[in-house]
Design a protein around this nucleic acid. Sequence first.
DNA 1: GTGACGATAATCT
DNA 2: GATTATCGTCACA
Length: 204
Amino acid sequence: MERLPAALPQSFYGRQVAEVARDLLGCDLWRRLPSGVICGGRIVECEAYGGSDDPGSHAFRRTPRSEIMYGPPGFAYVYFTYGMHYCANAVSHVKGTAGAVLIRALEPLADLDGMASRRGKAAIDPHGEIRPRALCSGPAKITQALAIDRGLNGTPLTGSELRISPGTGPVPDPEVKITTRIGVNSGAELLARFIVERSNFLSR
DNA sequence: GTGACGATAATCT
DNA sequence: GATTATCGTCACA
């Protein structure tokens, strides 16, 4: 992989966050490392987080951390949690509101070797082979596999460091399942988790 | 295969 | 001072 596919336009992200999350399924997330190596995968699971109407969202309150979720759509929101993990989001909302889509799982597509070495021994099976399911099956696994950290907070998703492209096209409705979000305490009943039901690369 | 638990620090009250 | 949009390991089945 040398040249990245064309990026989704910024306008893609300027819609209701649940709509964006639904449409991000089947799209491809790419990361160009400082070395020039490109890694990435297909989005098979993501969650929508809203603004002042969503108690489960960081943007429920407007704070320094969540300020970026109130900013222009189409940029990365990367936050640090549990003292050791990063999670990556796509800022998405209609003008005047706040929101972001948490990218929760990818089907690995490029640089699986590099991903495995960044993920460590948890990505290697007893025979010494890479376990593709262990590379990107969770939000913090993705950031580790793609070397995404807080330095990429605020990076455009239309650029060369970080990019989302349309992939092979929209995932048909019958293949999409919607569930409650994972790991959320308040607002737990909200149906805002979108998955490609038959994927082998989901979290949990 | 499942479920409990500890790691570890930024962020917010 | 409490909480946390998680993960890997370990026990057990």
